[in-house]
């Protein structure tokens, strides 16, 4: 039988932090170069990623239902949800910015939740897939995740600047939920180990 070209199958563990290779036969617990804990794969990758994914999924619901900010003008209050803020941008003719916010705060988080879910299912059911394409998907997910914080930063600026007594913008409860979703999905993607996708592929 042909041995797999994987480093682990050939008896090497790659350090997560500094990238140097260590022989499995050495039985060391920590990296000789940077002293961080050695793991062949990220520890409890699937369990951790699943737990983080479920928590972010449940927080994603309040993040979209509740208002992310309240605009008070001369005593009259008006609440905006994430989607409401985008519709408002479209209605006032600011299409490119509206699209930008649509991508960053709706498309990216929802596609990210679906994408990480698919990655987990793939590894769990040992689907025979084009691992290269799936690794690229993983790479895209880790790259775009942080851009969803855009909405949170925007709110912090609006809340700060529009504070005049008569006219006021106040952050709503969805802001906390949304920030948590972004951070939890970032952690979920970080805990997923893409090498798991390659480990059981038979054609390799």
């Amino acid at each position: 039988m042909k041995t797999k070209p994987n480093a682990l199958a050939q008896g090497f563990i790659r350090c997560h932090d500094c990238g140097c290779l260590v022989k499995t036969a050495d039985h060391t617990q920590s990296c000789p170069r940077c002293d961080s804990h050695l793991h062949a794969r990220r520890p409890h990758s699937l369990q951790r990623t699943t737990a983080l994914l479920f928590s972010s999924f449940f927080l994603y619901i309040p993040a979209n239902i509740f208002p992310i900010m309240n605009v008070n003008q001369f005593g009259a209050g008006e609440s905006h949800t994430i989607a409401g803020g985008i519709i408002e941008l479209f209605n006032s003719g600011m299409i490119p910015i509206g699209l930008l916010v649509l991508v960053a705060s709706i498309l990216v988080p929802s596609l990210k939740l679906i994408g990480i879910g698919l990655l987990l299912l793939c590894v769990h059911f040992r689907w025979q897939i084009n691992a290269r394409k799936w690794t690229v998907m993983y790479r895209v997910i880790t790259f775009v995740g942080r851009w969803s914080m855009l909405d949170i930063f925007m709110i912090s600026i609006l809340v700060d600047l529009v504070n005049f007594g008569a006219v006021q913008i106040i952050a709503g409860p969805a802001a906390t939920a949304f920030a948590a979703v972004v951070i939890l999905t970032m952690f979920a993607a970080e805990n997923f180990d893409p090498r798991l996708l390659w480990d059981y592929q038979q054609y390799l």
Partner: peptide, 28 residues
């Protein structure tokens, strides 16, 4: 230090903040 820097990389979000400034300014 090197390990810390490696882990911090993803959480430095200055570019994202800049985009937040742009959107906020367009709204204002």
């Amino acid at each position: 230090w090197m390990r810390w820097m490696h882990h911090l990389d993803e959480w430095v979000m200055l570019e994202v903040y800049m985009l937040g400034i742009i959107v906020a300014c367009v709204k204002l």
